[in-house]
Nucleic acid binder design. Sequence first.
RNA 1: UGGGGUGUCGCCAAGUUGGUAAGGCACAAGGUUUUGAUCCUUGCAUGCGUUGGUUCGAGUCCAGCCACCCCAGCCA
Length: 597
Amino acid sequence: MKSPDSVTTNNAANSIVNKNGEANAGATASVPSNFIRHIIEQDLQTGKHNGRVQTRFPPEPNGYLHIGHAKSICLNFGVAKAYNGFCNLRFDDTNPEKESQEFINAIKADIEWLGFHWSGEIRYASAYFDALYEFALQLVRAGKAYVCSLSPEQAREYRGTLTAPGTPSPYRNRSAEENVDLFTRMAAGEFADGVHSLRAKIDMASPNINMRDPVIYRIRHIHHHQTGDKWPIYPMYDYAHCISDAMECITHSLCTLEFEDHRPLYDWILQNLDITTLHSASDSKDGVESYVLPRQIEFARLNINYTVMSKRKLKELVVQGYVNRWDDPRMPTLSGLRRRGFTPASIRNFCDRVGITRSEGVVDLGMLEHSIRDDLDRSAPRAMCVLSPLKVILTNYPENSVELLELSCHPKEEAMGKRELPFARELFIDASDFEEIPPPQYKRLTVGTEVRLRGAYVIRCDQVIKDADGKPVELLCSYDPATLGLNPQGRKVQGVIHWVPAQQAIDVEVRIYDRLFNKENPDDKSGSDYKKCLNTESLVTLTGCKAEPSLRKALPEASFQFEREGYFCVDRYDSTPEKMVFNRTVTLRDSWAKISS
RNA sequence: UGGGGUGUCGCCAAGUUGGUAAGGCACAAGGUUUUGAUCCUUGCAUGCGUUGGUUCGAGUCCAGCCACCCCAGCCA
């Protein structure tokens, strides 16, 4: 794969922010600047890469993508787009033991769903195994890498500690010939796992442990999901990643902070390889003289309170059955958020709002909730659904009579049209909208008071019928025929509640989701007891909910605002026309909850 | 105790060569409202981890100190 045409420095520079700090129309609009964009703009100005910007998103296919990955995706794809550059999708598949095609498929789907398009074909580090092997041979011949026959345990001892320097491996001075022979035979599958490794010969006394002759190839007789059984040896991340970047002519290699200590190694590998060979193995269309090595830049990973973000822990939640799957709506995975009802735009906006820095913080879950409310308030049609039905009988409404009311689908967007809703003598309202003994400032229904039924009439409660336990089971009310679309004369009705017609409502299941953990920082101490603060009420399934009939034609994944309740979406897997299932994405902001508590 | 980082409002985050602290979330108070929603208005850091120094002037420069994060996988 050759890289796309480069653009001129001027074009790229023009799309930046102008002198007044206003973003020009186009890709950079509304995306806040950050230190990485500053670096890129500087490079564009100095013509470092001839005006070219090439990034990559390099997931390892060993799990599903989560919202932390979304931050990286938005950064890498966003920055490429902003400067007329390109972003590759490359699977960093150098450890087949933990990887699978299932994860590859899921990752691709998530990125597309988020709304990003990678440049050209999908890349695989494993597609570079031949080249990687040749480069390793080059290092070996140059005396810059050697085959070490220390066991993993021994190697650890020789490595030293954080404060004590390491000691050179007894195999460190094997001749180039012997190393070539051994390494070749490693690749030929002559040795068992772990008996040898290929190590870069750098500095066992380096204060940076990554530079103490890091292993760059290990023996693993294992099937690879892409290369099959071709290789019994696999390159390590530090060795494969920088070369893969160089081969794809990546200009800015963006990664998270924990790789900062690896940057000297990233640079060492590339600088100790023959630039001409590197260039000719690369995508570069230009001459070697304009071939510039990629620069690794680190930024802080995303943390959100009341959730965990490590793949290891997410995997554990799935495997041990604390959630249903990787796409459980409670998971911070992209597929989970999708199923919960989050939109791609809301996640992109969230990532933009959070920003890119080098300081690690914890973003408030409220910020994510705000992003989805912000999007859905504009885009989600309104509907009514009673979660906890309480029957209302309008004693003065004619029996067997039904009138068809017309309600707008959105209070502000006329273009979203209208829907019909039958009104009749028997209705359902939500049990929480009636109180026999109302708390202070209660604006809903009580005996003897009036309330507006949204989009319909004002009703007054005359009598409450209770069961043996004293629980209200039915309300006898009367409606004011003069209040359809009109305010009553001489009195003010301040409460408005939602309702559905009893006969025509459809029975639906509603899944009420809440945060997965009830502790702000679940992996606070010891790191392993994060499962102890799992929220036992993160999923409450409500059956027998009554939804307005217009919802019957809602398609999977469609989002609605159930008025006064929150945003809900049709579950993409479990909902059927016969038995609809809605997931609660997020509640509405609720100032009443603050007042009443 | 080695190395690498980070510290600006409760949270996130701007702050280009030192010139007198953006914005968002949250919160609070008003206004509009047939969603206690949305929307609108207003308020919200004499202060930039801390202590000194340089300077007419420092979040921005210098020095010391403190706190927190990452690194000892043949994981990424």
